[in-house]
Structures are given as structure tokens and as C-alpha cells.
Amino acid sequence: MEWIDFATPKSVSEAVEMMASKGDRARAMAGGTDVLVQLRGGRRSADLVVDMKEIPELNELSYSAQNGLTLGAAVPCYRIYQDKAVIDNYPGLIDAASLIGGIQIQGRASIGGNLCNAAPSGDSIPPIIALSGVANITGPNGNRQVPVEDFCTGPGQNVLQNGEILVSLTIPAPQPHSGANYLRFIPRNEMDIAVAGVGTSVLLDASGQNFVSARISLASVAPTPVFSQAAGDSLAGKAVSDEAIQEASEKAMADAKPINDMRGTVRQRVHLVGVLTRRTLNNAIQRARGG
């Protein structure tokens, strides 16, 4: 790794000032599980690495029925899957936090870092899109909010401008009769990069027999995570049935634009999107019914 300077700001404003002073030569770091590998491998370079872990807002993990979940951008995965409020209200988020890397990686890796790294395969991004997450950003010009489905702009690219940092994610409180799930396909049991992944959330009516709405998002099948609005919208107002689920999975497959690479072929990935959409929808429905 080339020479870097390292700073540990204690507040959001201090962090923004440091990031802004170095422009594109500054790099934020949360758990470092992406950025240290990239800096060492020469895929990214920086003059200043700014540690986000001592800023209170970036360590916040709080839930209220009114405001939903506030997930600080530097909170590591293990804190997420050990948190009672997340376990009770966001099982779809637990699905992702507990499968990123192994236990050592989960001790450091944050969801904020997973999102900012903007890998098409980032496992936390589809479930957060499915859960209507919003990114809370602060920069030299103040605060702004971006829906997570609009955050990634290309492989390793996101909407953050020089000097801006991701402070937290907000995920609305789950409505009654809603449920979510994330699944990915990997050839091993653990520690691999998704060949394809699907996150879904559903809102059912009080009878549990009809869809009110649904959101579906895909990993590893395009240059960015994909929000398949057509797939989710196709379920709105329909009775829960294998036919409706099949139709949604076909719409999701149509939105998948994968490439052939060493992990999988176009055909396999599109097929997987169909399978995983059906499975995650069924799991989300079961959770929505309280199962």
C-alpha cells in the first residue's frame, strides 16, 4: 500500500471537513474490509483515510415504531444481527447481515460500507431496497436523502460527491402483515460472492390472502443492484397464488441483465433470479403471515 495519512474524526462535521479538504484523494473507511483490500491491491488510491467509527451518528442503531430503523453507516454486521429490535422487525435485514463474509468479517464489515462500495453483488443492498431504505448523506452543502435504489450508479460508483459521507440509513417501520427475505446463490455454504441474489418484501391485506404491494430487488445481475419495480408492481392487488408469484418472477428475470463471468453464465443467472424470486416471495409471505 502507498503512504496514507489516517484521521479519526469525532463528529460528522469534522469528517466532512476532512473529506472535503482532500477531494477525491480522501477515502472514508468503516470496517475496512473492502477499502483496505482495494488500497493494498492498488485498485484504489488515497492520500487520506478517514475512519468513520468514532462518530456517534455513524454508530447509532435505534428503532421506534414511529421513525423505523436508524442504522448508522459504520455499525458492523454483528451488532445488527444481535439487536433485538432488528431481529423482531427486520428479519430480511438479518438474512443479509449474517451472510456477509465469515464471523471475522462480520466483526468489522458495515452495511454502510457494503452500500458505498456499490458492488453489484453487495448482499445487503437488495434487501434494503426491498425495505424502502433511504440513505442519509451529509456534505459541505448540508444534508440530503437518496432512496437506496438510486444510490449506486455503476460498479464501485455511487452518488456521493467529494466531501460527502453516508451518515446512516433509515428503514421505515414494518407495517402489520408485511414480511421480507433475502437469498443468494453461491456454490459454497459460506464465504463467497453471490452468483445471483434476490431481496423481496411484501405487504398483505389483513386476511393474509392478497398482496397489497411488493418490492423486489436483484444482486449480481447488472452493473448495479437492480430495483425490479415491474416485478413488485405486478403483485399489487392480486390474490396470493403460485401463478401471481410465477408472473412476478418472470418480470424479475426480464429485468436481470447479467454478464458471463467466472462465477456464472447469463443463462444460469437469469434462471437463478426466477428461482430466488419465487423462494424469497414465499418466505416473505410466510413471515408476513406471522410464520
Partner: peptide, 15 residues
């Protein structure tokens, strides 16, 4: 490290 297992190759010494 700080009560959790981590890969020390992915932690900076200054941390």
C-alpha cells in the same frame, strides 16, 4: 480485537 474476532490483516495498526 475489542471483544470480537477479526482478521488482523484487515485492521490498521493505528486503529
Amino acid at each position: 480485537f475489542d471483544g470480537r474476532i477479526v482478521d488482523s490483516c484487515l485492521v490498521l495498526g493505528v486503529e
